[in-house]
Design a protein around this nucleic acid. Structure first.
Lengths: 1251, 360
DNA sequence: TGATTATCTAGTGATATAAGTAATAGAAAATAA
DNA sequence: CTATTTTCTACCGACAATATCACTAGATAATAA
């Protein structure tokens, strides 16, 4: 015992600080620099639990910096520098075997250099082998093989050095060897089909039979253009659309989407021509391809065969467009500005309020030389052509800064960087709570990230071009040949390294600063003293700061003139083209970071700052645990959509009127500002004035941002009219799915949702027609009646429906009174069309029908708790009519209040007749999210405010009412609350626990660190890591201002409060997400079109019955096991090596015993015991107990620690007395609440479970 | 030590009782000797020569030793104690009870159980409850019938002292009756900042405003614990030299070892104009980076400010650091700014974060 | 030349910034005595 | 080790404070031996 305490004394000597390489510039890094790094420093650390095989490298930040430097230096062919970086990486790696990935990266890029020969590669590798003891993997061999091939070396004999299985693996690296290379290899007769990877067999066959279809060879892939080729725009259309333009609907189609490709449109146009007979007397000319309403054509097709052919032709056309969209988007924007600029010049004067685009082009022209110059300076610096010696201190600083970002500045052509900078700054207008401006930090980061995105798209494109070299067939055809290949063929998923925030910020700051410098706007003003009108130009952007509760906030503001020109519109081009909806199905998810768009990387899980989440995810992906998640998401991604043109036209008309209509806000008028006060007004009045002013401005800003947001949605929708579109999805950390494309997606409000149609159609049938009607009733607001009554409701209103469809603009049209009017209108159109047919059931419907869970969170809680009464209220039990929870709660509240009113309670008397469903709804909903009493009171207050004239104290009434609502909810969902409480308690214990690890436990203030997040695994295998930690801020100096961002690499303490409060809702959400993904998979397997908004599942009317069955089956399947019990077991495993702090009475015998142990230890230690010390001793004890050495075990058994003495006691019995003595005990979890009698199977028979 | 001439013997027993345990982050003078020394230094009897006419508004007096002593010295017509912290209200009720018993409260203490932070308190004090009715006096001199005492020692009340200073400029609140002297206990950090002169490291916007709108003295400071005070981390040395503040022994405070300072603030004769509001923004913009020079900070004044204003500003000011600017420098800059046609409106400069207030 | 000391630098932590706090209440965490 | 004071108050999608200075440790330059 004594010795351990002595050892503990030694531990006090500080561990040496690690070097910080992450903010060294490329030239400051020398190979092998950190030789001083010890194995101890390099040791892998754990995140939340040492049970999980998920680790954290202490140098992750440095390694990531070096890897990104390596990549960009290689791209710019600085091989010497890159090599230094490469060798600097090695000592920082906690797992040395991963070094091979970096080596391969170097090797591969280096091998493309013409001056390098295959001998050099082999030489280089053997050097590395000797120096670092790494072993080559198949990719390494593939790289060398590729060099052999390209130099016509003896590649076959090289390949034949390897065993057959190894050969096969080497050949599977298409991205390295390239299709052309593979063809060479395959054409060699010594290679047999057994050597060929399974997924390349097609290619192999193709090669061996190639002679048969030589004529399909074309000289080069169609998109293989240089960056400086012009992107065609269509003048005629731009002209004819200007009228629309003035209403605020700009057209993105011809700049972003209609990058017209003669070659590619040919195929689809010819298909359409072939089908002309079936299309009546319409005819199509070539150049109309870009204006085609593909959906309109598609709908008219009669046979399955036709449709298949059409879809296939369209796919090929769209694939090209999608590529262009992602890779060339920035050019499109520039061309549009240029076009308008030239038009303006032709017409002479440049009117002030017109021609925003021309203005932008002017900025672009002014900005370009500066950016070019900056890039040149960076290049010079990297070439070592700048001497550092005779610089002034200021210049030295500048130099140092430039040295940091230079490697990243020379990657993307200056032209593109200019466009990106302008677009980003305009896009961010009015974000982050800043009116007419943006947060500077966000702006800089965004610009930096946008450059990165551009660079990555470009390099992905380049590597694709390399893989499919020029001489092969059109890429599309090859892709088809290779389509059954599992992995991404154009990229190695291992080597994606994000740039650091420092790089984003510095790069962004350079570009932003230059733009702020050059961008001017013409102004006119009256000089108040002379009365003359002055004209001149002023900076278009203005860097300033704002104070928020006494905190400084860097801000970039836009000039009023620019704001005027934007006039509450959004800039269509500003939507990152890489993130628009897709024209082809997204790439399937194959890995945690591989899926979605073609040329930009998305992650499976949206991660805020948590490297921990990424680590867990990566591990899960490596273990193959995520496949079911992929499957579900892939179903969502494969659902093709189109825009509902009829509804769109109606919306546009109301939108263009500029007036308020339903949920369309009016065009902004001047905000209604309060009258200014005299200067010597009382302080109280002044502050009141400020308050009013703020609220007026806030209101105006809300309206405008709403209008702006809607504008974005409509513009994107317009761009995709008639198109077949897809939405790539990913999930939040709980597994809930979201479309990646912002603004316009089916998760939007009523207006947005009404624009969505399934591309595929399904004949209604009897049931489908009924469901269509039920859907109408639902969106109309009649969703609490039995299904037949809902059908009846629509039947009763059929005339109204038809009338709505025929005269939608009527002032008091029926559809406008619906709860969700736009969607109602959509259904009206559909029904009217259907009834035009003799037999409406034969109508081919495209509209999605929604099935919503009633209080989905509570449904899961009820299933978890087996709580029959709760289950009944949320329709888990079969019933004749749907239960309305809100109404029921309201009635419970009513009962309570009535009772108290009897007794003369004045609150009760007043509120007696004011208890409605609406009053309680929000509180019931948010109750699942753990709303507190105060929060709920605020909600209720808002609801009952209207009944008060001002004098009475509304808050008292609200509080009173809230109390009853809370009690009623608790009474009704007793089971749910028990579960909720259990989850909360478990989360609290975890987030307040201490790992048995001295280093972790030690902290400055003597209190133990709490480092364990709540982590659980969904039934589909997705690890959920709650990302709530106390963030540590990192300061980045840029030449615009310093910015602080939370350091994503810090492993700081958990935010216990947040962990606890958020766990119950997060857990339930992870379950509903699981349910959704399971249902998606099932529906996908049944080939239904499927979409979802968390707890609302969509499909064709005809397929609703089928989907409903799946919804119920999957729910039962999900809840067939005791999920809470499993969770508890998972927790017990994961946190078994953790201690928790509990408080007991100081008088308790255990307390006395512990005091005794502490006293003894203090004597030896010579200082006060900290919690960390106790943990250290306990850790030592456990190590000895678990040792192989019986001698050690013996010592362990004899050791007495503050923790070991607690083993004799039943801790649960101690808790409860006066608590003032804190002790450490092993982490345990309370027993789970007893499950009720509910058999989940019954939901299979419950019609209103989802409806 | 001289006699405690200002100590009210009637309260001797009261102040000999054990000190209250908790102070709600307020700090107080706890020794009669210290208070006496401060009162001697303030020499207020010369400034308020008509005892029968003086009203004292005493905010957050708390423990109240200093209040009772200043009361005993000045013998005011009314001494309004504004307090609403339960424990302190109790203390004051006790004091008044004692005084009433001993001499019918000839000290004229009135307890006003309201929140001293709230502006309405002062409004009601005069208009509704009419405890005092101050006279409007000319702004040529300091008001001699009204005195404000405020214990703003909790750091969170730093905003209050800042606002009280602005009331001097805007001639509102109690300052509308004339230039009313204020005696304020403030945290040491606040005193160091607010009392800094030009070029001192802690010079900030508030200290400029203090310069512009008031004539203030540092009356007393608490003893610093550590003998070694780093350069620039203490008070402005010129200030210490000029005002020769009384040193409050660290054991003479309640709670012990707490640090604070006493300021005597006399409003200057300022005419309230809208320009003052604009100047506030002007100062704020320049003070974004207080270590930079005027020429570096001018662009933050508004779009085009550097080009438009620079020609009107003398070079020697342009190269001065923001903190180095003196009162007259600032006045010159204000003048230039006032004449700039493109100067941004108050509305444009308002710091404002839009919050999404949408709910279901 | 090697050792020692002065000087410089980057990195870290603390503090200030503005200038209504509160219209609400009750538990939990933080902090001071 | 208690009592008081402060903090915070609904989940997710959705991301952010910055300038300055004093102080430290480690690196570099300078100096004297």
């Amino acid at each position: 015992m004594h010795q351990f305490l002595e050892h503990l004394k030694l531990q006090d000597q500080e561990i040496k600080k690690s070097p910080s390489i992450h903010n060294k510039t490329f030239s400051e890094i020398i190979e092998n620099e950190p030789e001083s790094i010890t194995d101890e420093q390099r040791r892998l650390r754990v995140w939340s639990s040492d049970y999980d095989p998920v680790t954290r490298s202490p140098f992750a930040k440095d390694v990531s910096h070096l890897q990104s430097l390596l990549e960009v230096l290689l791209t710019s062919k600085n091989f010497d520098r890159a090599r230094k970086i490469l060798e600097a990486i090695h000592p920082l790696l906690s797992e040395p075997h991963t070094f091979i990935f970096s080596v391969n990266k170097y090797l591969q890029t280096w091998s493309h250099d013409p001056s390098v020969h295959y001998g050099d590669l082999e030489q280089f590798f053997s050097t590395m082998e000797q120096r670092y003891g790494i072993t080559a993997n198949e990719r390494t061999f593939a790289i060398i093989l590729a060099k052999y091939i390209s130099e016509d070396g003896p590649y076959i004999s090289y390949l034949n050095r390897f065993s057959q299985s190894k050969k096969t693996q080497i050949l599977s690296y298409i991205d390295v060897i390239g299709v052309e290379g593979l063809m060479k290899v395959f054409s060699d007769n010594s290679i047999s089909i057994e050597d060929v990877p399974e997924d390349l067999v097609n290619l192999f066959r193709e090669v061996r039979n190639e002679l048969n279809d030589k004529e399909t060879l074309i000289s080069e892939p169609e998109y293989f253009n240089d960056d400086n080729t012009e992107v065609p725009t269509v003048d005629k259309d731009a002209e004819s659309l200007r009228a629309v333009d003035s209403f605020g609907l700009k057209v993105i189609r011809h700049t972003l989407l209609g990058l017209r490709e003669e070659a590619d449109s040919k195929e689809i146009v010819s298909i359409i021509k072939q089908m002309e007979d079936g299309l009546g007397n319409q005819s199509w000319s070539d150049d109309e391809a870009s204006k085609l309403d593909f959906f309109k054509v598609y709908k008219t097709l009669k046979t399955e065969e036709q449709r298949e052919k059409f879809n296939s032709g369209l796919h090929s056309f769209n694939l090209t467009r999608q590529r262009r969209l992602e890779v060339r988007g920035a050019d499109g924007a520039k061309e549009k500005w240029k076009h308008e600029f030239e038009e303006m010049q032709k017409r002479g004067a440049l009117p002030l309020n017109k021609g925003l685009n021309a203005q932008l082009f002017q900025w672009y022209k002014n900005l370009l030389p500066y950016v070019k110059k900056e890039a040149e300076m960076c290049q010079k610096l990297m070439d070592g052509k700048v001497s550092k010696t005779d610089l002034s201190p200021d210049e030295k600083k500048l130099y140092k800064d430039r040295e940091y970002y230079a490697p990243y500045m020379v990657l993307v052509p200056p032209e593109k960087m200019c466009v990106i900078t302008i677009l980003e700054l305009l896009k961010l207008n009015s974000t982050g709570g800043i009116v007419d401006g943006m947060r500077a930090a966000r702006a800089l980061i965004s610009v930096g990230k946008a450059v990165e995105l551009e660079y990555k798209s470009q390099s992905l494109l380049k590597s694709e071009i390399k893989a499919f070299s020029k001489k092969v067939k059109s890429t599309n055809q090859w892709k088809r040949i290779l389509s059954n290949k599992k992995n991404n063929i154009i990229e190695n998923p291992d080597d994606s390294t994000d740039w650091s925030y420092t790089v984003y910020a510095k790069l962004g700051a350079v570009l932003t600063n230059l733009l702020l410098f050059v961008a001017k706007v013409p102004v006119k003003a009256h000089n108040p003293t002379t009365g003359k009108t002055i004209t001149g130009s002023q900076p278009a952007f203005f860097h300033t700061y704002q104070f928020l509760n006494g905190q400084k906030l860097g801000v970039i503001k836009l000039h009023k003139e620019i704001i005027k020109q934007l006039a509450g519109r959004s800039l269509s081009n500003a939507v990152q083209p890489q993130l628009l909806p897709m024209l082809v199905a997204p790439r399937e998810w194959h890995s945690y970071n591989d899926g979605g768009y073609l040329y930009s990387r998305s992650t499976l899980v949206r991660i805020k700052d948590s490297a921990e989440t990424t680590a867990y995810l990566r591990k899960a992906a490596d273990l193959g645990n995520l496949n079911e998640v992929y499957d579900g998401l892939n179903v969502l991604g494969k659902t093709p959509w189109t825009v509902n043109r009829r509804v769109f036209e109606i919306i546009t008309r109301y939108w263009n009127s500029g007036e308020e209509f339903l949920d369309i806000p009016p065009i902004m008028e001047e905000p209604n500002l309060p009258e200014p006060l005299p200067v010597d007004a009382e302080p109280a009045q002044k502050f009141e004035y400020q308050r009013k002013l703020r609220s007026a401005l806030n209101e105006a800003a809300s309206l405008r941002s709403q209008r702006c947001d809607t504008n974005y949605k409509l513009e994107i929708a317009r761009g995709f009219l008639g198109e077949k579109v897809f939405f790539p999805h990913n999930v939040d950390f709980r597994g809930r799915a979201y479309p990646i494309s912002p603004h316009f997606n089916h998760l939007g409000n009523d207006l947005t949702r009404s624009l969505f149609l399934f591309w595929e159609g399904r004949e209604l049938g009897e049931r489908g027609l009924e469901w269509l009607k039920i859907h109408l009733a639902n969106v109309y607001g009649v969703d609490k009646a039995p299904l037949n009554e809902r059908v009846q409701f629509v039947n009763d209103n059929l005339e109204n429906v038809f009338e709505s469809a025929r005269n939608p603009y009527d002032t008091d049209a029926w559809w406008k009174k619906a709860e969700k009017p736009w969607q109602a209108l959509g259904v009206c159109f559909e029904l009217e069309e259907a009834y035009k047919l003799e037999n409406p059931t034969q109508y081919v419907s495209h509209i999605p029908i929604h099935q919503d869970g009633t209080c989905n969170g509570l449904q899961h809680y009820a299933a978890l708790g087996g709580d029959i009464e709760g289950a009944r209220q949320v329709n888990l039990l079969p019933a004749d009519r749907p239960q309305d929870v809100y109404k029921y709660v309201a009635s419970l509240v009513q009962k309570r209040i009535d009772a108290e009113a009897e007794e003369g309670n004045k609150y009760a008397v007043f509120l007696q007749d004011k208890i409605t469903r609406k009053v309680v709804k929000q509180t019931v909903m948010t109750n699942v999210y753990g709303v507190t009493f105060v929060g709920a009171t605020a909600q209720i207050k808002k609801q009952i405010d209207q009944y008060f004239s001002g004098e009475e104290d509304v808050a008292d009434y609200a509080r009173y009412l809230t109390m009853h609502v809370f009690n009623s909810i608790r009474e009704l969902f007793e089971g749910a609350h028990l579960i909720q409480d259990w989850l909360g308690d478990a989360a609290k214990r975890v987030s307040k626990s201490v790992r048995i690890d001295y280093e972790d436990a030690k902290s400055n203030d003597g209190k133990p660190n709490h480092l364990s997040s709540v982590i659980w695994t969904t039934p589909l295998g997705l690890p959920c890591v709650q990302p709530y930690r106390i963030s540590k801020n990192q300061l980045i100096k840029t030449n615009l201002q310093d910015i602080s961002i939370s350091d994503p690499f810090s492993a700081s303490q958990v935010d216990a409060r947040k962990q606890q409060a958020a766990f119950p809702p997060n857990f339930v959400h992870s379950l509903d997400a699981t349910h959704m993904l399971m249902t998606a998979k099932a529906c996908g397997d049944a080939r239904l079109s499927f979409a979802s908004v968390h707890d609302s599942y969509w499909t064709h009317a005809a397929d609703v019955d089928h989907m409903n069955k799946e919804i119920r089956n999957q729910f039962v399947k999900l809840h067939s096991s005791n999920l809470v019990q499993e969770l508890k077991e998972e927790f017990e495993k994961r946190y078994k090596n953790c201690l928790q702090v509990i408080s007991i009475s100081g008088e308790h015998p255990l307390a006395k015993e512990i005091k005794e142990v502490r006293r003894n230890n203090v004597k030896i230690l010579g200082r006060a015991m900290t919690a960390a010390d106790e943990i250290y001793l306990e850790k030592t004890r456990l190590e000895h107990l678990n040792s192989e050495d019986p001698e050690k075990v013996k010592i362990g058994k004899e050791m007495v620690t503050t923790v070991s003495v607690t083993e004799k006691y039943d801790l649960n019995s101690i808790v409860g007395t006066t608590k003032n003595f804190q002790i450490l005990v092993p982490l345990t979890f309370p027993d789970i609440p007893a499950k009720g009698e509910l058999d989940v199977e019954v939901v299979k028979e419950s019609p209103y479970f989802f409806s | 030590m001289t006699s405690l001439r200002s100590f009210n013997p009637a309260l001797a027993k009261h102040f000999s009782a054990p000190l209250p345990k908790f102070q709600y982050s307020f700090k107080h003078l706890a020794r009669r000797e210290t208070c006496q020394a401060i009162l001697d230094k303030l020499d207020l009897t010369k400034k308020y020569t008509q005892p029968g006419k003086l009203d004292i508004v005493d905010v957050f007096s708390g423990y109240g030793l200093f209040s009772t002593m200043i009361n005993y010295e000045l013998k005011p017509r009314k001494h309004v104690i504004i307090e609403n912290i339960k424990a302190n209200v109790g203390l004051w009720k006790e004091k008044i009870r004692i005084l009433e018993n001993s001499n019918a409260n000839r000290e004229n203490f009135v307890l006003y159980n309201r929140d001293g932070y709230n502006w309405d308190t002062y409004e009601d004090l005069i208009s509704k409850d009419k405890l005092i009715s101050p006279s409007f006096q000319s702004r040529d001199k300091i008001h001699d019938e009204l005195l404000i005492i405020g214990n703003l020692s909790p750091t969170k009340y730093e905003s209050l002292i800042a606002q009280w200073i602005m009331c001097c400029a805007y001639n509102n609140w109690l300052q509308k009756y004339g230039r009313v002297r204020m005696l304020c206990f403030v945290p040491t950090a606040t005193a160091k900042k607010f009392m800094s002169g030009p070029a001192f490291g802690k010079r900030n916007k508030s200290s400029v405003k203090r310069d512009l709108f008031t004539n203030s003295k540092l009356v007393a400071i608490t003893e610093t614990e550590d003998t070694v005070v780093a350069e620039g981390s203490g008070y402005d040395p010129r200030l210490l030299f000029k005002d020769q503040p009384i040193l409050i022994p660290s054991k003479g405070t309640l709670p012990t070892n707490s640090d604070f300072a006493l300021l005597e603030i006399e409003p200057e004769n300022i005419v309230a104009t809208t320009a003052i509001e604009e100047h506030e923004h002007f100062m704020q913009n320049l003070f974004y980076s207080p270590s930079k020079k005027v020429k570096d900070q001018l662009p933050f004044i508004g779009p085009g400010a550097l080009d438009d204003l620079a020609p009107h500003i003398p070079d020697e000011i342009m190269v001065k650091g923001i903190r180095e600017l003196t009162k007259s420098d600032w006045e010159l800059l204000f003048h230039v700014y006032d004449n700039w046609p493109f100067r941004p409106s108050l509305l444009d400069q308002m710091d404002f974060i839009h919050e999404d207030s949408r709910n279901f």
